[in-house]
Design a protein around this nucleic acid. Structure first.
Length: 511
RNA sequence: GGCGGCGUAGCUCAGUUGGUCAGAGCACACGGCUCAUAAUCGUGUUGUCGCGGGUUCGAGUCCCGCCGCCGCUACCA
């Protein structure tokens, strides 16, 4: 049995979960579900990043301890993911005991290996960003992000000798051309490395809300530095060498393009410094862009302001359109690796054409005709149906696409099968035929629905279960491993088929 | 400034190493069907492939220049 380890970034708790977080997490979830479906032993990890000055400040402003504050804010993410049917196997928090233990061991190892040393850092610091700026980055004398004045700071910090890894990183990139995808993002990281690397300050003394540096009291690790290590905490680094060996380094980090440097430069170097292999796969996704148009006011913080992606909560969409429809849109409309447009109009267009007209209507019309021509008992499929080829083609294309982290292609392939089934019904017109002569075509249509349930289950688990159940099957498609389960002829016949309400009622063009 | 990317039908986008590459889906039009969520099936229209040069028998596909947009340029989840 193969193993499959996939991660999202851990999200910073001061953010409210928004559509950008959801985009990444839903994609990771669908890919994880696909791997479970093909029988891989799968570990899907997400979580929250909870250290740093901003969190400490927010806690104080709310009159609670940082820990109480992050208990509350971390829960918002867990809740958002429940609302999107996210099937993470673990939810890591950087405030977990286990994480402190792993971070300290991992960094102690780097320290012992001689890649961490003390030095003095001087710079212009923005408290809001928790970050230093160079003079030319400033907007006058203010932080370009927050517009707040920066302060001159000087700290005795520990520095990670990133510069020592320039050659090794370049070699790693060249020996592993597919480690970072897409290639455009790999090149971006590589050119950054080739431009020369400077050592990075990885500890702070100005705050205490962080993981303590084990060899020097009074220092805590810089939030980014402890955050990356979560990927090792979850597989028991420092605790369970066997478990680490089982899952590492063949991990798949799914990340957004804004954090390329941390994941594609720092993180591999940190792993090298600690004496372990760098992560085998890093897949960089793009951003969802929100155009000039306004979204529904219920989704915007300020009804008249231009809506930003970060203003859109996943719940505002799932309440209106349903969990699976939102998941489908996120997976189908923006290929991983490129930026995409997000709009309610696009969501509705996709909903109506793919979900209501093609899939939902196919389920409805098949159920109706089985009801009228077969007394509601589904016949077995024909072994010679032309749809058998369509089904195997769809399965092969979907499998290939999921392997390449291309959910949109996997779904596109599945919809070609749905289209073929609709066309086959038109060609054979079972509603005109005498009962008794329609078993082959209706059985084959039901078989398509069974296979479609399997193929859509990573993307739309609830819909898959519902179709599965309506055609009379017990359990859930996710209990039936591919590819065997998707072989033509699996629908047994003799099962009771129920019509039910429309799976996806059509939507008006305006929300 | 430096490095990199993008600009293809109304919309969203495909287009490997240059030669049916001018495409898909949506939208739209017409026709069929009426089992189905006015859904479905079939057929079809739309483009100076950002602009201007060049290489070539032949260029969205290579080269040069220009215009427009964007990303990265160090510690911004």
């Amino acid at each position: 049995m193969d193993r499959f380890y996939i991660t999202t970034p851990i999200f910073y708790v001061n953010d409210v979960p928004h559509l950008g977080h959801a985009y990444c997490t839903v994609n990771a979830d669908a890919i994880a579900r696909w791997h479970r479906l093909i029988g891989d032993s799968t570990l899907f990890l997400t979580g929250t990043d909870e250290h740093g000055a901003k969190v400490a400040e927010a806690a104080e402003a709310n009159g609670v301890t940082p820990r109480e504050w992050t208990d509350r804010t971390s829960a918002r993410f867990a809740e958002a993911w429940r609302g999107l049917a996210i099937s993470n196997d673990d939810f890591i928090r950087t405030t977990d005991e286990r994480h402190y233990a792993t971070v300290q061991q991992f960094l102690q190892k780097i320290y012992d290996n001689g890649f961490i040393a003390k030095d003095t850092y001087r710079g212009l610091y923005c408290v809001s960003c928790e970050d230093y700026y160079t003079a030319d980055q400033l907007d006058g004398d203010k932080c370009p992000v927050h517009g707040r004045p920066v302060t001159e700071m000087e700290e005795d910090n520990y520095f990670f000798r990133l510069s020592a890894f320039e050659d090794r990183l370049i070699e790693w990139f060249e020996k592993n051309p597919d480690a970072i995808r897409p290639a455009s993002k790999r090149n971006e990281a590589l050119s950054f490395i080739k431009g020369g690397l400077k050592d990075v300050s990885i500890t702070r003394t100005s705050l205490s809300w962080g993981v303590p540096v084990p060899w020097d009291e009074g220092h805590v690790f810089y939030v980014w530095y402890d955050a990356l290590i979560n990927y090792l905490t979850a597989i028991g680094y420092g605790e369970d060498a066997e478990k680490v060996a089982a899952w590492w380094p063949n991990v798949h980090h799914l990340i957004g393009k804004e954090i390329i440097r941390f994941h594609c430069v720092w993180w591999p170097a940190m792993c090298m410094a600690a004496g372990i292999e760098p992560p085998a796969n890093i897949f960089v996704h793009g951003w969802l862009l929100v155009g000039g148009q306004k979204l529904s006011k219920s989704m915007a913080a300020d009804g008249d302001a231009p809506v930003k992606l970060t203003d859109i909560t996943p719940a505002s969409l799932t309440e209106e359109y349903g969990v699976d429809a939102v998941r489908y849109h996120l997976l189908r409309d923006t290929p991983l690796g490129t930026d995409g447009e997000f709009s309610i109009e696009g969501l509705i267009a996709r909903y109506n054409s793919d979900l209501a007209n093609n899939l939902g209507n196919l389920v409805a019309r098949v159920a109706t005709v089985v009801g009228s021509k077969c007394d509601g008992v589904g016949p077995a499929p024909s072994p010679t149906s032309p749809l058998a080829d369509s089904a195997s083609t769809a399965l092969a294309a979907a499998a290939d696409a999921w392997e390449r982290f291309a959910p949109h292609e996997a779904l596109e392939a599945t919809w070609r099968l749905i289209g073929a089934a609709n066309a086959e019904l038109e060609a054979t017109e079972p509603w005109k035929a005498e009962p008794g002569t329609v078993d082959d075509v209706l059985g084959s249509a039901l078989e398509v629905l069974r296979i479609v349930s399997l193929l859509i289950s990573p993307a739309m688990p609830a819909t898959a279960d519902e179709i599965w159940s309506r055609i009379g099957l017990a359990g859930s498609p996710s209990d039936h491993p591919l590819p065997a389960a998707a072989a033509w002829g699996g629908y047994p016949g003799g099962l009771s088929v129920t019509k039910g309400d429309p799976l996806f009622p059509r939507r008006k063009a305006t929300a």
